[in-house]
């Protein structure tokens, strides 16, 4: 089994509006896949369908060979599917390392223990520290989250997600809100992730997309327009007309 995540003919309507129409998408183990498309194409909706925040009207979500369509969001996380958010979802009142440690602690099911002091004897903190080092955040470990600059908060957003040791990682515009001069830091961090994690990235910055992705799906009005390698997508006339052209004109 090499398919990490599969979206099988999934459709979703919000009232009369078809936000997702018969979408197929497959992520192999270790995939570096980008999902692009103009605003309102339904990219975030598709991620919400994958993670279980939304339930599809039709179709199914297959995670590592298992049909998880009826699974709750939490259950899917436990089966290796983790995500970041377009807008940071952090624990603002805690320190940086506590943000990451909390994620690790939940993965290890320590959250049920209401008697032992948190993370003093276990190696949760060591693992959290290793993750911070991986993302070059170690010097910020004890900084309160709300005092961290936005770009670094974006990295913590990723660190929290990595605390789940995901097999499939969904990154919803990881560089959103980060000055373009610094966005490479985010991408470098993502590039350095383990080879066996399947990564799906939503991103508007085409430079980042073409640098990162080995395959690209173009979504337009809830439908897959085309899927291919970065070269194929760059050459595709339809994509140029619908998406890239719009970008140049805009």
């Amino acid at each position: 089994m090499t398919t990490a995540l599969e979206v099988r003919s999934v459709s979703k309507n919000f009232g009369a509006l078809a936000v997702t129409q018969n979408v197929h998408l497959s992520l192999e183990r270790g995939a570096r896949h980008a999902l692009i498309g103009p605003n309102g194409a339904g990219k975030t909706t598709l991620i919400n369908l994958m993670t279980g925040l939304l339930k599809p009207d039709q179709g199914s979500i297959i995670l590592a060979g298992r049909d998880v369509t009826s699974f709750s969001q939490e259950a899917r996380v436990k089966h290796g599917l983790a995500r970041t958010f377009q807008i940071n979802q952090l624990f603002k009142g805690l320190t940086v390392i506590e943000n990451v440690a909390l994620s690790i602690s939940e993965r290890r099911m320590h959250g049920h223990d209401f008697w032992s002091p948190a993370w003093t004897k276990s190696d949760v903190l060591d693992e959290a520290m290793a993750l911070l080092e991986q993302l070059k955040l170690e010097s910020d470990a004890l900084v309160p989250m709300q005092q961290l600059p936005y770009g670094r908060q974006r990295l913590v957003e990723i660190a929290i997600t990595l605390g789940q040791q995901p097999k499939v990682l969904l990154l919803d515009e990881p560089a959103a809100g980060v000055p373009s001069a610094e966005s490479h830091i985010i991408l470098d961090a993502v590039d350095a992730l383990a080879d066996d994690i399947a990564i799906l990235i939503i991103e508007h910055d085409m430079d980042l997309v073409f640098r990162f992705a080995k395959s690209i799906t173009v979504l337009v009005r809830g439908e897959v327009l085309v899927e291919g390698t970065p070269d194929e997508i760059a050459q595709n006339a339809e994509v140029k007309a619908v998406y890239l052209g719009e970008k140049v004109n805009g």
Binding site: Q89, F91, K92, G93, L94, E98, L102, E106, G111, F114
Partner: peptide
């Protein structure tokens, strides 16, 4: 406890 930290997590986000 770790449970208590989790509660703060729920409060925060």
């Amino acid at each position: 406890s770790a449970f208590g930290r989790g509660l703060v997590g729920i409060r925060e986000n």
